[in-house]
């Protein structure tokens, strides 16, 4: 029995004991929402000009994903399948409104710089996608794990992209006001190309190719 299970999950985390952990890891690595599933791309490109924005956005997505997954999975037996999509959208929109009000009240600077992309979490394919594919069919506990895994995977992707763009584009790294480091030559002559919109497309295109290349190498 144990042997069989180990064989079945030979590619994902091997030492995985509970299903909770398995769902969590799945979202984090194997089906990373950005690089592998290519979901939720619009905000990815827009908010990754600085680490602050990227982390704020990631936190927002985790919050909305977690809350909406919990609610949708709790209501999964009471929701008629004919109207499930409108129900999901209203649930998600409610939490996005709550999030936007919280950000406006406590971290107005971040709310200002994220702008409409914060509200656009409503139409982020990841959240509706997880509601439809996972939360509407699985118990609450697993849905929480799924939300945390996918949300963290999304945040990590945001972090990697914004790290590259901010380091190359400004020649240093500022996290919430603290200067972490600044590179000697780059900080005087920053490659502002990476902060501009073409740079965003280029960085994410190259990263996607890299992830795919790693995937190909690992499978062989």
């Amino acid at each position: 029995m144990n042997d069989l299970r180990d064989k079945r999950e030979d590619c994902p985390g091997r030492s995985v004991g509970s299903i909770f952990w398995k769902e969590f890891v799945k979202g984090l690595v194997i089906s990373n929402p950005v690089f592998i599933l290519t979901l939720g791309l619009c905000p990815i490109l827009a908010v990754t000009t600085s680490i602050d924005n990227a982390l704020g956005m990631g936190a927002g997505v985790i919050f909305v994903l977690l809350c909406s997954n919990i609610i949708i999975s709790t209501l999964r037996n009471a929701t008629p399948s004919l109207v499930r999509i409108p129900v999901f959208i209203v649930v998600i929109a409610t939490f996005v409104t709550i999030l936007s009000l919280i950000f406006e009240a406590y971290i107005p600077a971040l709310h200002q710089s994220l702008g409409i992309y914060l509200s656009l979490i409503v139409v982020n394919c990841i959240i509706l996608g997880r509601a439809e594919v996972f939360a509407s069919k699985n118990p609450v506990l697993y849905s929480i794990a799924d939300a945390l895994g996918i949300g963290l995977g999304y945040t990590i992707a945001l972090f990697i992209i914004s790290f590259l763009r901010e380091t190359l584009g400004t020649g240093g790294l500022n996290v919430f006001g603290f200067q972490l480091f600044s590179l000697p030559v780059l900080s005087e002559h920053p490659l502002t190309f990476f902060i501009s919109s073409p740079g965003a497309f280029l960085v994410i295109g190259l990263l996607m190719a890299l992830f795919r290349w790693i995937g190909v190498v690992k499978c062989e």
Partner: peptide, 22 residues
């Protein structure tokens, strides 16, 4: 190249297009 095929190359194309629109 194989790992570039599909979406990655589409993104790089978009980058060049965005540069032109800039």
């Amino acid at each position: 190249p194989e790992s570039m095929r599909g979406l990655p190359i589409a993104f790089i194309t978009a980058a060049l297009l965005a540069l032109a629109f800039l």
